[in-house]
């Protein structure tokens, strides 16, 4: 009886857990319409890590293409050190933008070159300016984009490669583009990465559209979850520790209960 009851207890507990997961997952999946094509990323899985060369290239794509419209206001230039850029490189990148500072001793605001501790430069001063420059649409901030969209990096990859001509019978609103992975299929952003060689990579990688898209997805995932590597490495150790502790605790329990059973 006790063994059977124990098994039953574990089964019901597992069922409740699974039910909780089940209940939450379809709730989230409700938004997606078209199944996303699957790409293997280096950060997937229990031992996932970032491909730093790819993320650096992705930063280059962001800087040269995306950043014309999209801000990343949660990131600072100093964070790029974590991608393997040197202190001098980070200083150089930061210095290319002008940052408003002040007031100085005369009480005037002034502009100065950026420093590593500054946040990424935003293309527009506020939401209204961004909307005004983009036909009423707001280019979302990309700092958290892979966490803020169903599908994460897979979605970013699908969206950037999902542009096509509208199927027969679909009339686009003025200024809109057809994208099979965008909810509602009408997206204000024109295809941002459309031609091979749009960005010139310095490490000799061939800048195909697919390569650029994967690189920028890698970079955006790092930007959204910079703790990912530390988290997964810690998780593996934690689970191993708990397996051993669980074995010990079970042995103690068996020993303690030996005289009762």
């Amino acid at each position: 009886m006790p063994v059977k009851a124990t098994l039953k207890a574990i089964a019901v507990a597992a069922g409740l857990l699974a039910g909780a997961g089940l209940g939450a997952l379809p709730a989230r999946a409700a938004g997606g319409e078209t199944a996303l094509p699957h790409v293997n990323f280096s950060f997937d899985g229990l031992f996932g890590h970032f491909d730093r060369a790819s993320a650096q290239r992705g930063f280059q794509v962001y800087k040269e293409v995306c950043s014309n419209c999209h801000s990343m206001h949660l990131l600072s230039y100093r964070n790029l050190r974590e991608l393997g850029l040197s202190e001098a490189q980070v200083r150089g990148i930061a210095a290319t933008v002008q940052v408003k500072d002040g007031p100085n001793d005369e009480g005037e605001m002034f502009e100065r070159p950026g420093r590593p501790s500054d946040r990424f430069h935003s293309p527009f001063p506020n939401e209204q300016a961004a909307r005004a420059a983009n036909n009423g649409a707001l280019p979302p901030d990309l700092s958290l984009i892979t966490k803020a969209r169903e599908g994460g990096a897979q979605y970013v990859h699908a969206l950037l490669t999902g542009y096509e001509d509208p199927p027969a019978g679909v009339t686009l609103m003025p200024g809109m583009n057809y994208n099979k992975y965008f909810p509602g299929h009408q997206i204000a952003m024109a295809q941002p990465l459309s031609a091979e060689g749009q960005v010139e990579y310095t490490d000799g990688t061939k800048p195909t559209v697919e390569q650029m898209v994967e690189d920028v997805a890698q970079f955006l995932t790092w930007a959204a979850e910079p703790e990912l590597e530390q988290r997964k490495a810690m998780g593996v150790k934690m689970v191993l520790f708990l397996v051993i502790l669980g074995g010990l605790a079970y042995a103690v329990k068996r020993k303690v209960w030996a005289d009762v059973h």
Binding site: A20, G21, A24, L25, A27, R28, L46, P140, L144, K147, A148, R149, E150, A224, R231, K232, M234, G235, V236, M238, V239
Partner: peptide
Amino acid sequence: LVFFFPNMLGHPDNYI
């Protein structure tokens, strides 16, 4: 949950 699926039970919209 915490180390491998920290956002599985949350909603992506809460990162907006």
